[in-house]
Amino acid sequence: MGTVIIFALVALLALYGMFRTLREKNVLGFLFGLATAAVFGWFTIMTILHQGIPTGTH
C-alpha cells in the first residue's frame, strides 16, 4: 500500500510544479506537469478505490 502514498506525493509535487511553471510562463513544463499530475492522480484514485485506504497494519 506504499504505492498509494508514493503516487499521491508524485501527483502533489506535479501540481506544485504546474503552478510554479505558470508563474514562469513555461508552457512545456506546464504540459509535462499536467500530464504527470493527471496520470499519477488517476493511479492514486483508482488504487484507493480498488484496494482501499492504507491502514498501516497487517
Rank of each mutant, 00 (worst) to 15 (best):
residue 38 A to K: 00
residue 23 R to K: 12
residue 2 G to A: 15
residue 53 I to F: 13
residue 43 F to Q: 11
residue 34 L to H: 06
residue 14 A to G: 09
residue 38 A to G: 12
residue 39 V to G: 12
residue 23 R to N: 04
residue 58 H to R: 03
residue 42 W to G: 09
residue 7 F to E: 14
residue 38 A to Q: 02
residue 55 T to A: 10
residue 1 M to N: 14
residue 58 H to W: 06
residue 28 L to M: 13
residue 52 G to D: 04
residue 42 W to K: 03
residue 8 A to K: 04
residue 16 Y to V: 06
residue 24 E to G: 04
residue 42 W to M: 09
residue 27 V to P: 00
residue 47 T to A: 12
residue 4 V to L: 14
residue 6 I to A: 14
residue 41 G to P: 03
residue 22 L to Q: 05
residue 15 L to T: 01
residue 10 V to Y: 05
residue 15 L to H: 01
residue 58 H to L: 10
residue 43 F to N: 06
residue 2 G to S: 15
residue 26 N to K: 13
residue 12 L to C: 07
residue 46 M to L: 10
residue 15 L to P: 00
residue 40 F to S: 05
residue 26 N to W: 06
residue 38 A to F: 15
residue 25 K to T: 04
residue 12 L to M: 11
residue 1 M to W: 11
residue 29 G to N: 10
residue 41 G to Y: 03
residue 29 G to H: 11
residue 17 G to Q: 09
residue 20 R to L: 06
residue 40 F to E: 02
residue 15 L to E: 02
residue 44 T to G: 05
residue 29 G to W: 13
residue 51 Q to E: 10
residue 42 W to I: 05
residue 37 A to C: 09
residue 28 L to Y: 11
residue 19 F to E: 01
residue 43 F to E: 09
residue 58 H to G: 06
residue 50 H to K: 11
residue 2 G to I: 15
residue 55 T to W: 01
residue 41 G to T: 02
residue 3 T to F: 15
residue 3 T to S: 15
residue 29 G to S: 12
residue 10 V to F: 08
residue 10 V to E: 07
residue 26 N to L: 08
residue 52 G to Y: 05
residue 30 F to P: 00
residue 23 R to A: 08
residue 44 T to I: 01
residue 47 T to H: 10
residue 10 V to R: 05
residue 29 G to A: 12
residue 15 L to Y: 04
residue 43 F to M: 12
residue 30 F to L: 13
residue 9 L to K: 07
residue 25 K to L: 05
residue 2 G to M: 15
residue 52 G to V: 09
residue 53 I to C: 01
residue 55 T to I: 03
residue 42 W to Q: 04
residue 10 V to G: 08
residue 35 A to T: 09
residue 49 L to A: 12
residue 49 L to K: 08
residue 44 T to H: 04
residue 8 A to L: 10
residue 31 L to I: 12
residue 53 I to V: 14
residue 31 L to M: 14
residue 42 W to C: 08
residue 8 A to G: 13
residue 10 V to P: 07
residue 55 T to N: 06
residue 6 I to V: 15
residue 6 I to S: 10
residue 24 E to C: 02
residue 19 F to D: 01
residue 29 G to D: 11
residue 15 L to C: 04
residue 44 T to M: 04
residue 14 A to F: 02
residue 33 G to D: 08
residue 9 L to R: 04
residue 50 H to W: 05
residue 35 A to Q: 08
residue 49 L to T: 06
residue 47 T to R: 08
residue 37 A to D: 02
residue 45 I to V: 15
residue 17 G to A: 11
residue 27 V to G: 02
residue 33 G to H: 09
residue 32 F to D: 10
residue 20 R to I: 00
residue 40 F to G: 00
residue 7 F to M: 13
residue 18 M to R: 06
residue 27 V to T: 11
residue 11 A to D: 06
